[in-house]
């Protein structure tokens, strides 16, 4: 079975983020790049499945990123993935969820897969829209928010996390899945994994290899960031003075009622 994990490279979660006002995009230079933390859970889920299923199960890391991200991808290889493929092309710049999903889908068709596992969200944009768009372009079902996965005879049985608990959902491969953080804490890479990662291949794909029929990059984007604004500063708090307890309670009551909170 071939599992492909999609991974996004994002600016270090702890770094202060800056938006370039001209391009309205996140500034990615001068900030350390890391694997999107949600995707580390997807990698963990894939590696755990590989351990459980054994045999010829392989885990391939797939990312759409500049070639300079190779070093970051290597961390996923050090965790235990078998190989990696990067879709790197200047023509992808400015792709929104829709255009990214289209380009990624074409690449994933070429790579081949039985199961695609994605993190539920990316730390930078937080749209969470890509996995579903990807499944649409690939023509495979999307099983979202899995917290526990079992696979046997190309049949998938998963617990799908909901606000109040979980649903048990079944389906057949090939499919795409997103996983939640309940799927299991991502493992540390091991020293042997780090030392062995350089012997694993990271193939680089360009758009010209994909035979695209639709535009990607800024031209293929269906959405446009019109304006970016900082969160408005919080105004001064209202200070009320009350003669006694009941009078204070009345002020609070009126305030809440005025806002239809009571």
């Amino acid at each position: 079975m071939k599992i492909v994990v999609t991974v996004k490279l994002v600016p270090d979660t702890n770094a202060v983020k800056r938006i370039d006002p001209a391009t309205k995009r996140l500034v990615r230079t001068g900030v350390e790049t890391v694997i999107n933390p949600f995707d580390e859970y997807a990698i963990e889920a894939a590696l755990a499945l590989k351990e459980k299923l054994g045999g010829d199960t392989t885990v391939t890391i797939f990312t759409m990123a500049a070639e300079s991200g190779k070093e970051v991808v290597r961390k996923a290889l050090a965790m235990g993935a078998d190989d990696a493929v990067m879709l790197s092309d200047a023509g992808l710049e400015g792709s929104d969820v829709w255009a990214s999903a289209y380009a990624m889908a074409q690449a994933l068709k070429k790579i081949g897969f039985d199961l695609i596992i994605c993190g539920a969200l990316a730390e930078d944009g937080n749209t969470g829209g890509l996995p579903n768009a990807l499944s649409e372009y690939l023509g495979v079902p999307a099983l979202t928010n899995a917290r526990h996965i079992e696979i046997s005879d190309a049949k998938v049985k998963a617990q799908r996390e909901t606000d109040s608990g979980y649903q048990v959902v079944t389906g057949a491969l090939p499919m795409l899945m997103t996983v939640t953080m309940a799927v299991g804490e991502p493992r540390y890479a091991s020293l042997k994994g780090i030392m062995g990662a350089k012997r694993k291949t990271t193939a680089v794909m360009a758009l010209s290899e994909l035979g695209l029929e639709k535009a990607v990059g800024t031209g293929g984007a269906k959405t446009e960031v019109v304006e970016i604004a900082a969160r408005p500063a919080r105004g001064k708090a209202r200070v009320e003075e009350a003669a006694d307890g009941p009078a204070g309670a009345k002020i609070i009551f009126d305030f809440l009622k005025e806002r239809k909170l009571l």
């Binding site: 070093e71 290597r74 961390k75 540390y188 890479a189 020293l191 780090i194 030392m195 990662a197």
Partner: peptide, 9 residues
Amino acid sequence: DEQKAIQSL
């Protein structure tokens, strides 16, 4: 790259 990866691990 290995030294950096080991340090960060």
